[in-house]
Nucleic acid binder design. Structure first.
Length: 199
DNA sequence: CATGGGATTGACT
DNA sequence: GTCAATCCCATGC
């Protein structure tokens, strides 16, 4: 498989968030297929870039195809792919992976030797821990750096959209994308349209 | 320089 | 269901 080049990311962030479903994140000998993403754009207040260019957001405003990694809640590192042309602050948050290789190493890094496979990377903080992604990866090139994203084979399955998770602003935007029915997405699972009508 | 708030997770009631 | 852990950094004095 081929690493995605900067031009892949240099387009509307919502397009990229959808297109990244089914692609593969690789770091060293561990890898997983992306099954859940969220889009963030400088035009809406949930995005870190909303406040403008600061030391923290400089990566977001930089060229596309770069990793934006930041610390969340003082504990977790969260992995994003910077999108849109340089000068526009936008990124796709990688929220969940389906592990495909290096699963033993993932469990070892997670400190949970017997953790269920569908719990191993089912959250943005969990997958960075499993892959060994740290703040040192911030600013790395996703086409040739330590963390890379490879092109997917093309996703034929349904991708659900829904509201983003864990934010307090712009909660109404349906900018979360999940591979339908996949067991490795984070909670809460998106509700398929038309389901749960009866009560 | 002091403060406050998270794009979360896991443990516990 | 509730809640603490923990640190970067934006903001305000």
């Amino acid at each position: 498989m081929q690493a995605l080049q900067p031009d892949f990311y240099a387009r509307p962030v919502l397009e990229v968030a959808r297109a990244l479903i089914g692609c593969t994140v690789v770091r060293g000998d561990v890898a997983g297929v992306i099954v859940e993403t969220e889009a963030y754009h400088e035009s809406e207040p949930a995005c870190h870039a909303f406040v403008g260019l600061t030391p923290r957001t400089s990566t977001l405003f930089g060229p596309p195809g770069i990793a934006y990694v930041y610390r969340s809640y003082g504990i977790h590192a969260l992995l994003n792919a910077v999108c849109e042309p340089e000068g526009v602050g936008a990124a796709v948050l990688i929220r969940a992976l389906e592990p495909i290789s290096g699963i033993t190493a993932m469990r070892r890094r997670r400190g949970r030797v017997a953790e269920r496979l569908d719990e191993l990377c089912s959250g943005p903080g969990k997958l960075t821990q499993a892959l060994g992604v740290t703040l040192a990866d911030n600013g790395g090139n996703l086409a040739r750096g330590g963390v890379q994203i490879l092109a997917g084979a093309g996703v034929s399955e349904v991708v659900h959209t829904g509201p983003r998770i864990g934010i307090t602003k712009a909660v109404e935007l349906p900018w979360r994308f999940c591979l339908a029915g996949n067991e490795h997405v984070s909670r809460p699972r998106p509700v398929p349209l038309g389901a749960g009508a009866a009560r």
